[in-house]
Amino acid sequence: MAAVEVEKLTKKFGDFTAVDALSFEVAKGEIFGLLGPNGAGKSTLIRMLTTLIPPTSGAARINGFDVTRDPDHVRRAIGVIPQAMTSDLDLTVTENMLIFAKLYGVPRARRERELKELLAAVELSAWADKPVKFLSGGMRRRLEIARGLIHEPKIFFLDEPTTGLDPTSRIAVWEMLMKLKAGRDLTILVTTHYMDEADRLCNRIAIVDHGKLVALDSPLKLKASIPATSFLEVSFSKLPEGWTEQLKGLPDVESVVEHDQVFRIASDNGPRTMTDLMDAAKRAGTEVVSLSVKSTTLDDVFTHYTGRQLRDELQSGKLDIGYMYRKGSGI
C-alpha cells in the first residue's frame, strides 16, 4: 500500500479548476516533491490531502484512509506544516508543542519524551521556555516542524517550508528534517519553489501546472527528459550579422536565446558545441569574450514543462483569508 494514493483528484472553485484530475502515488518512506508555478494548484492539492478542503471529485487515500470518508484517521496519520507560520507568538516553544500534543491526544508520558527528543533534534532545547515571538523565522520554522511531528505521524506534508528563510536557515531546516526522518518511518510530501532543494532532497518530483500533472519522475530522469543536456552562456567581442541564426545552425544546438548580448545556448552535447562555437567565431571574425557551460538543472526542467509566462492569475478569494498577515497564500 502506497502512503499517498491520488486518483483523478479535482477541485473547482466556481468555473475555475484549481486541481484537474490529478493522479499519482507516493511510496512509503519517499520524499516526494511537488513543484509548480504560483497558482498551479499545489496548495489546493495539499489542502485536499490534509482534509482542509473537500475535493470536487476523484479520490485520495492517505495511509489507506480516504480523505473524504475517513478524515479523522487521515488526520491522525499526518503531520502538516502549512505555508503560513502558525505558532502562537505569545506562548513559549514548549507550550506550543504541548498544546498541539494535547490536540492530537498524545498521552502525557509520551508527550514529555517526544517534546524533549524533538526539541533536541531541531536544536531548540535551549529555547524551550522562551516565547516564540523572540525566535527568528528559521527557528520558528524548525519549531513548527517539531510541532508537526509531536504525534509521530506517518506522512508529513510541508507546504513551502523554507520560503522566506535565508540560505543558512534553509539548509538547517532540511538537515534537521532529514535527521528526523532517519529515525522515523516517515513519508514526506513537500512543495517548494527552491529547485536546488528539490533536486538534492526529493526521491521523486511531480511538476504541476494549471492544476494538471505535467511531469513525474526522479530528479535525474526529469533532467534527462528534456531535450538539452547542457547550457552554454557565451558573449562575443562583436556580433556579426545573422549571428543568432548561425549559432542555431550549429550541430546539437537545441535553442539560442540572446539577452543583453549574452547568448544562452541549449545543447545536446556541451563539449562539442563549445568547440564548434570557437571555430564559428573565428570564421566570422569575432572572439569569444566569456564562456560558461553548465549541465541541465531542475530549473531548466521546470521552465521546460511550465514555460516562462508569468503567473499573475487571480487567487481564489475564498481561501485567501490571511491576506492581512501572510505574504501570499497561493492556490
Partner: peptide, 13 residues
C-alpha cells in the same frame, strides 16, 4: 483564523 491558526487546528483530529 486569518493568521492560519485555525488551519493548524483543523488538521488535527
Amino acid at each position: 483564523k486569518a493568521r492560519g491558526m485555525h488551519e493548524g487546528y483543523l488538521v488535527t483530529p
